[in-house]
């Protein structure tokens, strides 16, 4: 039954991808992309990847859409009709597809328990996590401890995007396009979104904190929590307008969050060296190695959440405030 459902969802995914290509209005294409992401998240859930599903829903469908909307507002939503004949594209794409389908016949079948990836490395994670790290969510254990260096890199990836967007959008506009648009007042004149938004806002933030601190036990963690809290604060900015949002939550706080979280993560790693272990070795942080692991994961997850939240907010505001720049 599940497999039929999965086949149905996957086919829908292909159909929507085709629809995205064919849509000539970029707003429509963007909405279809959001649906695509949500479908993708559902697929991930069927394939037992709860953490990834949550992240894809929060970041892929949520934040990405908001950033695209911000950019669409600054550009235009109509695409010029498509004329070029894809002489180059067709062979490139056809070769890629052929190569992948050719390779797929030797791939392990979906769900095959004998597949190599279930035999090597991962059994060790499943076996040792209760003994060495002792948190129920193995995904968080790998993310936060066994492969914590990847996660550190990931935090700096989002920080790099934040620095980049701020740098690019702080350039002076060419003089002819400069305008002094009045600061946006958001949706504060519209009663229904205002009331409904204010009502769900606290719950979004609360849910964000739940996801942050429950990441050890269930799906969730810093990335998802940071994205969810950022979504809540972006909703606030949409409801109240840029100016009020920035007064309530000024830019320097966001920058301090984005930089501070990344710094916190790196410093936890350095603490490992200072206490006589390796970089990102949490076992030495406390006299009991397992308590040390718990402390380390708690701290770095906090660092991740703070940086993700701060960076995403800065990126959103950089786009939103550009109009009246």
């Amino acid at each position: 039954m599940t497999i039929l459902f999965a086949v149905f969802l996957l086919s829908l995914l292909v159909i929507i991808a085709v629809a995205i290509i064919r849509a000539e209005n970029l707003f429509v294409a963007l909405m279809l992309t959001t649906i695509f992401s949500l479908l993708m998240a559902t697929n991930f859930f069927i394939l037992d990847a709860a953490d990834v599903a949550l992240t894809e829903a929060a970041i892929g469908a949520g934040i990405t859409t908001v950033i695209f909307l911000g950019a669409l507002a600054l550009t235009s939503e109509h695409e010029k009709p498509f004329v070029a004949v894809p002489w180059l594209a067709l062979p490139v794409v056809a070769v890629t597809a052929a190569l992948l389908i050719f390779a797929s016949f030797d791939n392990p079948r979906l769900g095959d328990p004998e597949a190599p990836i279930h035999q090597h490395v991962v059994p060790w994670y499943l076996e040792q996590t209760p003994k060495l790290v002792d948190i129920p969510n193995v995904v968080t254990a790998i993310l936060g401890s066994f492969r914590a260096f990847d996660t550190l890199g990931e935090v700096f990836v989002i920080f790099a995007a934040c620095i980049g967007v701020l740098f690019l959008l702080s350039a002076r506009k060419p003089s002819e396009t400069r305008c002094t648009a009045p600061a946006s007042v958001g949706l504060s004149q519209h009663l229904i979104p205002k009331v409904a938004g204010r009502f769900i806002l606290p719950f979004i933030i609360l849910f964000g904190f739940y996801v942050q601190f429950h990441g050890d036990f269930g799906p969730g963690g810093g990335f998802q929590a940071g994205a969810i809290v950022a979504t809540g604060l972006i909703l606030f900015a949409l409801l109240e307008g840029e100016e009020r949002a920035l007064r309530a939550f000024p830019r320097w706080i966001m920058m301090a969050m984005a930089a501070g979280g990344a710094l916190l993560y790196a410093l936890v790693g350095v603490a490992g060296i200072a206490m006589g272990g390796k970089f990102l070795d949490y076992s030495v942080l406390s006299s009991d190695p397992i308590a040390g692991q718990h402390l380390g994961i708690l701290l770095i997850e906090a660092g991740v959440g703070i940086t993700v939240c701060g960076s995403l907010l800065l990126i959103f505001h950089a786009f939103a405030a550009r109009e009246s720049f």
Binding site: F159, I163, A259, L263, V270, K278, F279
Partner: peptide, 25 residues
């Protein structure tokens, strides 16, 4: 603490630590 042993890690960690500081300056 023998720094020589950690050089490979420090090669990346030193710049990474500096990035947030520079962004705040």
């Amino acid at each position: 603490m023998n720094l020589n042993e950690h050089l490979a890690a420090l090669q990346i960690v030193v710049p990474l630590l500096a990035v947030p500081l520079i962004a705040l300056l």
